[in-house]
């Protein structure tokens, strides 16, 4: 199998081109900012609750900090991952290395998987950068570790789905900007489509809500791994990877 050399080269290229540092840095910065805001407003809320002699037990860290924190992180991923995936094929096509690469005895699927895994490792790094915030949270108050684990797990599945779509976009063009914008646009549409879910009538509203790419993270953030959400992200990943593979293969008969 030739997945490993492709994967290693891609990962090295991420760090050599400083994309990795920029993306990791910005993701850590933004999620840190969200974390600070959420903890601060939680602090204000609990202060207000004590003053009005309400029971402070009504305020829950998981509910008020953890869930919005994961949701915000997943939106940040939606913004940043198209930048991670845009170069995967577009750059090789523009520079011409794709031509040489495909004259080596490698299968398209090996190239695709190698590149996909490199982007996935980078996104694991991004998700891992949330850990310090979560540890700090544990010092602030008692938190449930179940939702933390499932939330992180859900973010990874979501990242895989975003990467698959981004890879497809990158395989269709040799312009990295076009790849990034189209992947970002598609993901954004797949997110905001959920907002009209409540406006549409009953049969459509369930379908539309099911399509929405961010909403499926909610149950993960609550500490529940629901098979329908897991399957949604897996199907999403497989579908777009398969389409990317078809695009790669199409050059054999299209010329």
């Amino acid at each position: 199998m030739h997945i490993l050399p492709i994967f290693k080269r891609e990962l090295r290229a991420y760090f050599a081109s400083s994309i990795a540092y920029v993306v990791l840095g910005i993701f850590a910065l933004i999620s840190g900012y969200f974390f600070y805001i959420l903890v601060y407003s939680f602090h204000l809320d609990s202060l207000r609750a004590t003053m009005s002699r309400m029971m402070p037990q009504g305020l829950n860290l998981t509910e008020l900090v953890l869930r919005p924190f994961f949701r915000n992180s997943s939106v940040t991923l939606l913004f940043l991952l198209p930048v991670v995936t845009m170069r995967l094929f577009a750059e090789e096509k523009r520079v011409g290395t794709a031509e040489l690469l495909f004259t080596y005895p490698v299968r398209d699927i090996e190239v695709l998987l190698g590149k996909f895994l490199a982007a996935l490792i980078l996104s694991i790094g991004m998700v891992a950068s949330l850990l310090p915030s979560l540890v700090i949270l544990a010092f602030i108050g008692p938190i449930e570790w179940g939702p933390v684990a499932t939330g992180l797990f859900g973010l990874l599945f979501q990242a895989a789905a975003f990467i698959a779509l981004g890879t497809l976009a990158s395989s269709m063009t040799e312009n990295q900007i076009v790849a990034a914008i189209s992947a970002f646009g598609a993901l954004l549409i797949l997110w905001v489509i959920g907002w009209v879910g409540n406006l549409a009538g009953p049969p459509f509203s369930t379908v539309i809500t099911h399509i929405s790419v961010i909403d499926h993270l909610d149950s993960f953030a609550k500490g529940v791994i629901e098979s329908k959400d897991l399957i949604y992200y897996m199907n999403f990943t497989i579908l777009f990877s398969f389409l990317a593979l078809r695009v790669l293969e199409s050059k054999r008969w299209r010329g």
Partner: peptide
């Protein structure tokens, strides 16, 4: 592909390698 060595017209490289 296993049996050929190919040198394209403008050899494309990964400049960071």
């Amino acid at each position: 592909k296993r049996r050929i060595g190919y040198l394209p017209e403008n050899v494309p490289f990964y400049p960071e390698m």
